[in-house]
Nucleic acid binder design. Sequence first.
DNA 1: TGTCTATATTGACACCCGTCAATTCCCGGT
DNA 2: ACCGGGAATTGACGGGTGTCAATATAGACA
Lengths: 119, 119
Amino acid sequence: MSNSRVELPVLAPEVVPCCPPLTSAELSEADAVKTAAMFKALGDPVRLRLFSKVASHPGGEACVCDVQDVGVSQPTVSHHLKKLREAGLLASERRGTWVYYRVEPSVLAALARLLDLNR
Amino acid sequence: MSNSRVELPVLAPEVVPCCPPLTSAELSEADAVKTAAMFKALGDPVRLRLFSKVASHPGGEACVCDVQDVGVSQPTVSHHLKKLREAGLLASERRGTWVYYRVEPSVLAALARLLDLNR
DNA sequence: TGTCTATATTGACACCCGTCAATTCCCGGT
DNA sequence: ACCGGGAATTGACGGGTGTCAATATAGACA
């Protein structure tokens, strides 16, 4: 098969940037839908721990085997990582046997700016 | 019934501060449960818009009548505001006919610090 | 080719969640 | 006391979500 695969599968383009601080102006309905999807992805304890494990892992990335000890089954871990990827918070890449996940910094920064208090 | 109610009902004390940046260390299970509850509260488009309307309202607070135009019924607005209050993100106070909501700054700051990238 | 390991997908199930209509509660004014 | 309006609660319904067991896929190595 052609090896022109560029990988980086999901992460739809309209998920990326978005929005001034919440304290400075109210969100449009469309922006609220996009942004709420990201918060929703972080709104489950297991997903938040998985995200935290990836984000804090040395080198900025972690394979599933590094993070899957969160008290649920392997398919459930895979399911949650997929949700985080679909929300644009994580990116994944297969290298040999393992699949590595890393944080999408721009998206995380957008969320942080959204919550920023010092206007 | 006795009218010795002190108001300011919810906002349990253990909801308040919490946790270094997600990129610096992984969350404990207990911290993940508490923090995920806040993200979950922001993970619905209607709630996020309500929160945004309160946060960006002049004077730092808004009565329900100021924010309830989000396309759902009045009971649903009340329901969502209650969720935001229970998550520790909003505080409410009745003054005469109207009930005013305002953002809990410390909680919002904690979430922003959690998502902070630099460092 | 076949086997082993790592990760993803499928299908099923119980429970949670957002929503509304109807009702109730709380407060001011008359 | 009564009434009117703002806001909260109740009860019900439909769709979504987290979870697991079973299975499938993909790559590494014999």
